[in-house]
């Protein structure tokens, strides 16, 4: 449990051509994915994009329509959930309401026939990891949301699974607690060295916690990469606009502004607003200003009604006046072509 985990190059899970349909609905469409041992992999995508379905197929709750899933190199496609060496943390935690925290945590060991003393030992150790010492005898309905979340995590971790699957485990928590738990989850993952497959539709959560991010859209993988790759070099216009906000130029607009045909993305933080009329760039009017605390988002409109967003540090905000004509400038290498 003390080994400091670094993602290795050995493969924990492989999805091969995985497809799942519910009647007419194609929930997951020919997904190929390798998850490395010890890595924190996040499935990111909008609601209904198939993230949960992928997770449920890996856990064994949902049968595949076609394709196969390998755990540690072994095909487990037809293996029932209770025989797979993976554990799940459910979004609603699914704690057993009639059992205490300790009994919940010991459950997996108990049904596998682990002796009582060893069960106690391992459960107590894991209670320490999730900082719930002293809560062992409480029932789930006597715990706060964050505490329940930790119990759900402990109940899964105590089994030392090869892979832990987490479906929006922080979705039910308020913002402050969610941010705390993000840091804690990440540090627990690094301490125990178990592979995490984490589902979220929150792009900032995905960027801040993951070793790699898989962006889903409509049942298909749009891009796989590190958080930096995903954010800085989005492969598709969907990724560019779903992960963070961006300016997209395509068609005639691309021709006119970039000078080439195709679809291009330009992050708002790379757009500078200049009031020096001798500067060459795109002229636009400041049409609205969104104050975001640490910075502001300035929306500009050109005379042929193209909207461009720029991020401005608040110390420079005083120069930006609504309705003013400005010149928008960016470095050529800030523009990326996407498909």
């Amino acid at each position: 449990m003390t080994s400091k985990a670094k993602p290795s190059s050995t493969i924990a899970i492989s999805l091969r051509e995985v497809r799942k349909t519910f009647g007419e609905v194609v929930a997951v469409d020919s997904v190929d994915l390798d998850v490395f041992n010890g890595e924190f992999l996040t499935l990111l995508g909008p609601s209904g994009s198939g993230k949960t379905t992928v997770l449920r197929m890996v856990a064994g709750f949902e049968a595949l329509t076609s394709g196969s899933i390998l755990l540690d190199g072994e095909d487990v496609t037809g293996v029932p959930a209770f025989e797979r060496d993976v554990n799940t943390v459910f979004q609603d935690y699914a704690l057993f309401p009639h059992m205490t925290v300790l009994e919940n945590i010991e459950y997996g060991l108990k049904v596998k026939g682990v002796a009582r003393d060893e069960r106690r030992n391992r459960a107590t150790k894991i209670l320490e990891v999730v900082q719930l010492i002293g809560f062992a005898d409480r029932k789930p309905n006597q715990l706060s949301g964050g505490q329940r979340q930790r119990v759900a995590l402990a109940r899964a971790l105590v089994n030392q699974p090869k892979v832990l699957l987490l479906d929006e485990p922080l979705g039910a928590l308020d913002l402050k607690l969610r941010e705390e738990m993000q840091v804690e989850l990440k540090s627990i993952q690094q301490r125990v060295g178990i592979t995490f497959v984490y589902v979220t539709h929150d792009q900032s959560e995905a960027l801040s916690m993951s070793d790699r991010v898989v962006v889903f859209n409509a049942g298909k993988i749009e891009q796989i990469g590190t958080p930096q790759e995903i954010y800085e070099h989005p492969a598709t216009s969907f990724v560019a606009s779903f992960v963070g906000i961006t300016n997209l130029f395509s068609g005639d607009r691309a021709q006119q502004i970039i000078g080439r045909s195709g679809t291009f993305t330009l992050r708002p933080e790379h757009v500078q607003i200049s009031f020096d009329s001798s500067q060459t760039g795109l002229s636009a009017t400041i049409s609205s200003i969104q104050y975001l605390g640490a910075e502001s988002r300035v929306h500009c409109t050109t005379k042929d009604n193209l909207k461009v967003i720029a991020t401005v540090a608040n110390e420079h905000l005083s120069r930006v006046v609504l309705g003013q004509l400005a010149t928008l400038v960016w470095k050529p290498d800030a523009v990326f072509e996407v498909s």
């Binding site: 709750f61 959930a81 209770f82 799940t88 459910f90 704690l95 899964a156």
Partner: peptide
Amino acid sequence: EASADLGA
């Protein structure tokens, strides 16, 4: 499902 997931 949680129970099955935990090996029962």
